Amino acid sequence: MPKNKFQEVVFTVIMVFFMVYSMICYNIRLNVGEMTNSIFLSAFHELIIMGPIAFVLDFFIVSKLAFACASRMVDFRNCHPFSMILAISVASIALMCPLMSFAATLLFKNAGSQFIAVWIETTAMNFPAAFFLQLIYVGPLVRFIFRHIFPEKEGARQTASEM
């Protein structure tokens, strides 16, 4: 997908915005006990804090580790592009979810002496939502947006059957 550092920054910003915003809405809903329209506005207040944390973690640490883990799962030279995307996404979720849950526990949960237990519980509650959001909704949406911001040259474009 991204071909240079600028594109990596843009891709990461878009992914962080959608994933962090979605996960904040999910966590506020868990805390409140019901879904209300006000949650969508409230989430922007936390996004200002959690967005930069997620960007720094993903851009400087997790993306490199996820790529390395994914390259152990599939052979990037010989695999179908979908297998590569899936492997990178799964590795990214496995790394980002505990890290972001740690940040959320530290900043918003007032866990006190039960910090480890609350962090593990937060990670366990967030993981299924992060997994399905990334693989089914946010990941495809962000790749769609990214492809329209940075269309590939005609000669390099893949056909639908290749993906």
Rank of each mutant, 00 (worst) to 15 (best):
N78Q: 13
N31T: 12
S113Q: 12
L65G: 01
S92I: 03
A129G: 01
W119I: 04
I88N: 09
E152Q: 14
P151V: 05
F131L: 11
C25F: 02
I24F: 03
T123Y: 13
I85C: 08
P81T: 07
N4M: 07
N37I: 12
A160Y: 07
M125N: 14
I39T: 03
F146Q: 00
F55M: 05
V118F: 04
M15K: 01
C97E: 07
K64V: 08
V16K: 03
F76Q: 05
K5S: 13
T105G: 04
M50V: 10
I145F: 09
L99P: 00
L86C: 10
C97W: 10
F82C: 08
R72F: 13
S71N: 14
P81V: 06
P2H: 03
V74F: 09
F17K: 01
C97G: 02
Q114I: 10
A103D: 00
P98V: 06
N37V: 11
Q134A: 15
S113R: 15
F76N: 05
F115T: 01
T105P: 00
L57I: 05
Q134C: 12
E8T: 10
N37A: 15
A70W: 07
A156P: 03
C25M: 08
M125D: 12
I85E: 09
R157C: 08
F102M: 03
F76V: 04
A117Y: 07
C69P: 06
M23L: 04
L41R: 08
R143L: 15
N78I: 09
E46M: 11
V138M: 01
M23D: 02
A103F: 10
F6V: 09
Y26E: 00
S101V: 06
F82E: 05
